[in-house]
Structures are given as C-alpha cells and as structure tokens.
C-alpha cells in the first residue's frame, strides 16, 4: 500500500501532446477511477504509472519514490489488462505464481500465496486449468488473482470489464469493489463507463483531451458538475442541455420558451436538467411527447419543446401515446446553469 502522486504529467508522441499536464494525488488505499471518452489519455496515464509508457514531463511517484525512470518490475505495481493477458501456456496456478518465480520466491512460500489468493477469489478448484478452459468471468478473476498474489503497493486496472457481457459486468464490478475493501490496496482503475466509475470509485477523475475536467467523489460530480462535459458524461440518460439566456422571469430558450430557473448573477447561456428531474406536472410547461420507451419499471419519454428535444425519465409506468401534449416541471434546486464557455455558473 502506498500513496501515488502524479504531478504535471506530460506525454508527447512526436509533436502530438496526448497528456497536457495532469496532476492527481492519490491517498494510500484510495480507489481512483479515471474515466473519459476514448482518446482522452486515461489509458496512457495508467500505462505511464505502470512503466509501460515513457514520461515526457512531470513526475510520478509511488510511495516516496519517483518512478519516472524505473522499469515496471521495480515499481511494486500489479496490473489487470483489458484482455486479461493470461499466459495461455500456463495453468491458473502457474499464471498466478509467475511474478513470484521472477522474484525467486521459494516454491513453498509461492504455493502458499497462490493458495491464499485463490481462496480469496474462489479460484481453488480452477488452479490446474488452462486459461482457454475458463469462462470470461473466471479469466477475469484469475487476472485479479495474479495481481493479488504479489501484494503490490498499487493495483492498476485497464478497462477490465469491457470484454464481459452486461450481467457479468455488474457481478464483477461488485467483486472488484469487495476485493478492494478487503485488501485495501491503492487502486487506479480506468474505464469509459461512467456507471462503473460512479459505483466503484472513492474519487472519480473525468478526463478529456489529455486534461482533467473534474475530480471528486461520485456524488460531488453528479450534483455539482463543473461544466457541461462532466454534466453530460456523468449520469444516464445524460443531462438535457438547452441553449438560451437567463432573464428575470426565468431561462428563455433560443426559440422563446421560458423555463423556471433560479436567479444567478452570472450570465447563463445553457440550462441543464437531468431526465429524472424532469417530471410530469399538469401545471408545468406543456411539451409534446414524441417517443415513448417503456422499460418495465420506468418509462423514458422523448419530448419536444419548440426546437429543443428533451428526455424525461419517469420512475413509474406511464400509459401515453406519442403526440400527446403533457405538462412537465422541475425542482429549481435540480436545475444546472452554465455560462457561455460551458462552465458552471457560481454565485
């Protein structure tokens, strides 16, 4: 276990800058999720921490050591890859013991550690099998076992669940979180899936174009997104954003509709409301229902207001036919206002 400190990390390929000075302080035992669209530099940053990519500028330290010039094996890290990268010619036990063999740990100790890790992950009966004989979830668990066996200072996960089907993903998500709660090893986890980020992270780092957009706890990011990008990236379905201007009576959309909004001294140019906060209200603003998507317990509605399209997520079943005009309203406290640069308006 060790803290990880990334200061002003830069990565250049030739003249292209893929990381433009990223700083993150990770406490001992913290679970940090790097999230962002593909190409945002999150995987590159993880690979720089692992030592698989060189560092073009800044420093990365693990514990109290600057690791910039250390090869992966001297960094005391373990990594779980997207494809799991299990050695196909070795059994599960051999896969897990490989790093110990490289460290010349004697066989008895190594066997005991493998046994212990296998117990923890429920791999006991699979130790003699080869990776090709395992299911996706089992492979995932072996990859984690390989990391756990070494008892490293830091766990690195590179989109470990993206090769699993939806159901298994939910299950493995819980298992990874459970593992972290038991071993309490500092963890950096990369994903493009905001649900994974929300459910697993102590701290989420939202990245875009090689820069950090916002860093904070899942609830902070959800409640107080610092800009439109984060607001739309976190939460599903994503936040409705409507262009317009904030006036004394409320927010006036570009085609003249007036939406109730909290007063602000800042000049707000965008109005944001999460679909689940836009609720049917006979006294609300009339909107035309364009598409109805019943999902069993919930109903998702695509609405039209002038030229704007909005989404509403209703937490119950709703019998309504497309073309119906219904009233909708939102609690003022759930309205987000952004300025012309897309940043959150602060009073």
């Amino acid at each position: 276990m060790a803290p990880v400190k990334i200061s002003n990390a830069l990565k250049r390929y030739g003249t292209v800058e893929v990381l433009k000075g990223v700083s993150i302080d990770i406490d001992e035992g913290e679970f940090v999720v790097l999230v962002g669209p593909s190409g945002c530099g999150k995987s590159t940053l993880l690979r720089m921490v692992a030592g698989l990519e060189g560092i073009s500028g800044g420093t990365i330290s693990i514990g109290d050591r600057v690791v910039n010039d250390l090869p992966p094996k001297q960094r005391d890290i373990a990594m779980v890859f997207q494809s799991y990268a299990l050695y196909p010619h070795m059994t599960v036990a051999e896969n897990m013991a490989f790093s110990l063999r490289m460290k010349r740990v004697d066989k008895k100790t190594a066997d005991a550690k493998v046994e212990q890790a296998a117990q923890m992950l429920g791999l006991g009966s699979l130790l003699g099998r080869y990776p090709r004989e395992l299911s996706g979830g089992q492979r995932q668990r072996v990859a984690m076992g390989r990391a756990v066996v070494r008892n490293p200072a830091v766990f690195l996960f590179d989109e470990p669940l993206s090769n699993l089907d939806a159901k298994l993903r939910v299950q493995m998500r819980a298992e990874i979180k459970d593992l972290h709660q038991r071993v309490k090893t500092t963890t950096i986890y990369v994903t493009h899936d905001q649900v994974e980020a929300m459910t697993m992270a102590d701290t989420i780092v939202v990245m875009r174009d090689g820069k950090i957009e916002q860093m904070g706890t899942p609830i902070e990011l959800f409640d107080n997104p610092s800009n439109i990008f984060v607001a739309q990236f976190i939460g599903s379905p994503s936040m409705n954003i409507i262009e317009g201007t904030l006036g004394p009576k409320g927010f006036v959309t570009s085609d003249g509709h007036v939406l109730p909004a909290p007063q602000s001294r800042a000049v707000a140019k965008s109005y944001g409301i999460r679909p689940e906060h836009l609720v049917p209200d006979p006294a609300g603003i009339p909107m035309e229902v364009v598409i109805v998507e019943p999902m069993g317990s919930e109903t998702q509605l695509i609405l039209r207001l002038g030229q704007s399209t909005l989404t509403s997520l209703v937490r119950h079943r709703l019998d309504v036919v497309p073309g119906t005009v219904m009233g909708f309203s939102a609690d003022l406290s759930s309205v987000h206002l952004f300025d012309q640069n897309g940043n959150r308006c602060v009073d």
Partner: peptide, 15 residues
C-alpha cells in the same frame, strides 16, 4: 500474439 502478454510479463518482473 497480443502485446499485453509481453506487458503483463514485464509487470510480473520478467526481463
């Protein structure tokens, strides 16, 4: 052969 296998080996401490 995926490069990730080489990388996993480096991280596992293989030269």
């Amino acid at each position: 052969i995926p490069r990730e296998l080489d990388e996993a080996a480096w991280i596992d401490g293989a030269g």
